[in-house]
Simulated assay, not measured.
Amino acid sequence: MPKIKDVIVYPVYAEASSALSGYLPFSSSIEGAVRRGYSSCFVKVVAEDGLYGFGECWVREVPQATAEIVERLLKKVILGEDPLETEVIWEKMFATLKNRGYSRGHLIEAMSGVDIALWDLKGKILQRPVYTLLGGKFHDKLKAYASSIVFGKPEVMAKKAREWVDEGHDQIKVKVGMGVERDAENLKAIRNEVGGNVEIMADANSAYNLSNALRLARYLERLEVRWFEEPLPSYDLKGYIMLKKKVDIPIACGESLFTVYDFKDLIENCAVDIIQPDIVRAGGITGCSKILNLTKAYNLFYSPHVGLSGAGCRAATIQISTSTSPETFLMYEVYDIKESPNPFSNYICVEPVEKFSKGYISVPEKIGLGLEINEERLKHFLCK
């Protein structure tokens, strides 16, 4: 069996035509913290016979830092390893980080991208789609929702919701977090525009404390909102436990957590209804498989986060979702800002990873992740 010969990193950045951040409470005084571009770090793992796999690391800022972690640390761990032994390599990488005191942050995000690349390579070696290696195919297509309607005047947000519905979406996610009264006004306008047959999800990106989250949750229930996402910071475990006990609306959380060890407390304390790991942050395919097993054991729903990430995240998320049973899998997130498209989603691909039609994403039949990167286009965005 050919061993791993090389690891190549592509830290990339592209300017956006408008700010990408959600609401920041001090944005007027910390203008430099407002996100104004797309960042990512792609990883290419090459075997001795020339076959290779691509992965992606979660990056919101400073992609060079993530690339350095892969290049200077994780590459040393995996060179010479058997690329089929994804679990062994994952444990070696995690032990390397854990023994240095790291179980979160950039280092786990870097490890996630390496793991995804290994699964892509593994699928190519075995000439099988990754979902087959994960146990099989439960879905020919994945139910998908549109994300996200960003902050604006109520009539502007309602107009955007109407556009998405006209494009074939019957489930849409809306940003909240501007204050209970303003959020309520925005959501009421959207509900009035799209009617009762369209499901709405509300995403607060950790904006609230327990008191205000509880106030907004009760209003969301009256509007029949499908779920309330990240109402509190992910570190507020007691807040989540108390909120879930007091409301009927399903509570979702997970995009800000790292590995199964973060999710364990949330799940075992029955603090949420819907688990939302992001595969490029939560340990890659191997790491998310561990989270999924715990999610199934507690009979919760899995609705993966994608957000501002690129094609590597989306391809890997489609594969693991395809192999997740209908009793656990809820919905796939189609994140698209048409006014400022993410070039790392489709432009760098030979063909798009996501193919949306009538509320669903189709599942590719190709080997590996079904991902083919145009490396010349990718190199165009390399950080200087």
Rank of each mutant, 00 (worst) to 15 (best):
A315V: 12
L378F: 08
G22P: 05
L118E: 03
I373M: 12
W58V: 07
K366M: 04
L237R: 01
K153E: 14
A282D: 07
E61Y: 15
L300N: 01
M201T: 09
R314H: 08
E339G: 06
I241T: 12
G359Y: 02
L24D: 11
S323D: 09
C57K: 07
S29Q: 14
N192F: 05
A144G: 01
F138M: 05
V45P: 02
Y145F: 11
G370V: 07
T132I: 10
D236S: 04
R314V: 07
F94Y: 15
L126P: 00
G368A: 04
V130R: 03
H139L: 05
A19N: 09
L220Q: 02
S309Y: 06
L97N: 14
S21V: 09
V77L: 05
M111D: 02
W164P: 00
V43F: 11
F301V: 02
P352V: 13
S21F: 07
L300G: 01
L84M: 05
I172L: 12
V334E: 04
V62D: 12
R72E: 05
K44L: 10
G177K: 07
K379P: 11
I337F: 07
E372A: 14
R226Q: 13
Y145A: 01
E155K: 11
R35C: 04
P304T: 08
W227V: 11
L121V: 02
G113H: 09
A311E: 10
R104D: 12
I78E: 04
A207S: 08
L133D: 03
S256A: 12
R35P: 00
E48Q: 04
I4R: 02
V260L: 07
E365F: 07
Y332C: 03
L51R: 15
Y332T: 03
E163N: 07
L79D: 04
R218V: 06
I251V: 14
A271W: 14
G53I: 03
S321C: 15
A33V: 04
L371A: 11
D183L: 12
A67D: 02
Y208T: 00
L121C: 04
P129H: 13
Q319V: 08
K141H: 11
K366R: 10
P11T: 08
M201P: 07
T96Q: 08
E68I: 03
Y145V: 01
K98V: 10
L134V: 14
K141S: 11
E376C: 02
